[in-house]
Simulated scan of single mutants.
Amino acid sequence: MSRNIEIEFKNIVTEEEFQLLLRTFHISKKQFFSQKNHYFDTKDFALKKLGSALRIREKQEQYELTLKKPADIGLLEINDVINQTEANMLMNHSVFPSGEVKDELHKMKFPIDEFFLYGTLQTDRAETEYKNGLLVFDHSFYLGKEDFELEYETIDRDKGEQFFNELLEKLNIKIRYADNKISRLFKVIQGKKES
């Protein structure tokens, strides 16, 4: 169980730019690990409307339930470590495990029995320290799509933004707004419903 403020900057990059970043920071294939994010919301996207998100992250047979919600600066992230049985009960039967995430959703007056699994996004990820923060290289796959993204996690919003933008400029990478992963997944789901 943990609570922390997440301040991060994201940029969608092309595959060519992604390879340039990996070469620049000497990131090898061996440094990548795989994780799956299973995303939840209500049928009417109640969490999304509040700028919040709910997911189970599955990594090396470990499971973490995370609620992200807007904070004064960045996002407040509430995490509960759960076991595989609890993860399966939530994904398959909408049964919430006890913990801080469930308590917070009750405080937010959400009918927790209305959450269901919307979709899963798999990410191959590598990380390296950079200027008192963490650079994250993500190659994500979801619903027949894939994308490449650079993230920079920091504790100082102003300096972090400056360092991130300077890095993009130095490598001649265009600034491209990156929706968070759950929004990218939802857009594809909504696009499929509309077509």
Rank of each mutant, 00 (worst) to 15 (best):
R3T: 12
N4P: 08
I5W: 04
E6W: 02
F9I: 01
K10N: 11
N11L: 00
I12R: 11
V13P: 11
T14Y: 08
E15V: 12
E17I: 01
E17A: 12
E17S: 12
F18N: 05
Q19D: 09
L20K: 04
L20Y: 04
L21C: 06
R23Q: 14
T24E: 07
T24P: 10
F25L: 04
H26E: 04
S28C: 06
S28M: 02
K29M: 10
Q31T: 04
F32M: 07
Q35E: 06
Q35P: 10
Q35K: 07
N37M: 01
H38Q: 10
Y39N: 04
F40T: 07
D41I: 01
D41Y: 08
K43Q: 12
K43C: 09
K43P: 06
F45P: 08
F45S: 11
L47G: 09
K49E: 11
L50I: 12
G51Y: 00
S52Y: 07
A53D: 02
A53Q: 01
R55Q: 08
R57N: 03
E58A: 13
K59E: 09
K59C: 08
E61C: 09
Q62G: 12
L65E: 02
A71F: 06
A71L: 02
D72G: 15
D72N: 14
I73P: 09
I82M: 07
N83W: 11
T85Y: 13
E86T: 09
N88F: 05
M89F: 14
M91L: 02
M91S: 14
N92F: 08
H93S: 15
H93K: 04
S94D: 05
S94G: 09
F96W: 13
F96R: 09
P97N: 08
S98I: 06
G99R: 01
V101W: 00
D103T: 14
H106T: 14
K107M: 05
M108E: 13
M108V: 07
K109R: 11
K109S: 11
F110V: 10
L117N: 05
Y118H: 11
T120G: 09
Q122I: 04
T123M: 05
A126Q: 05
E129A: 15
E129Q: 11
Y130C: 04
K131V: 12
N132T: 07
N132P: 05
L135K: 02
L135I: 07
L135E: 02
F137A: 06
H139A: 03
F141H: 14
Y142Q: 04
L143K: 09
L143A: 10
K145I: 04
K145A: 14
E146G: 11
E146T: 10
E149L: 07
E151Q: 02
Y152T: 03
E153F: 13
T154N: 10
R157P: 06
D158I: 15
G160K: 03
E161R: 15
Q162S: 13
F163H: 15
F164L: 06
F164M: 03
N165G: 10
L167Q: 01
L167A: 12
L171S: 09
I173E: 00
I175S: 15
R176S: 14
R176A: 14
R176K: 15
Y177H: 15
Y177M: 13
A178T: 00
A178K: 04
K181T: 00
K181C: 06
I182G: 08
R184G: 05
L185I: 02
F186C: 12
V188K: 15
Q190E: 08
G191I: 00
K192N: 11
K192S: 11
K193S: 09
S195W: 05
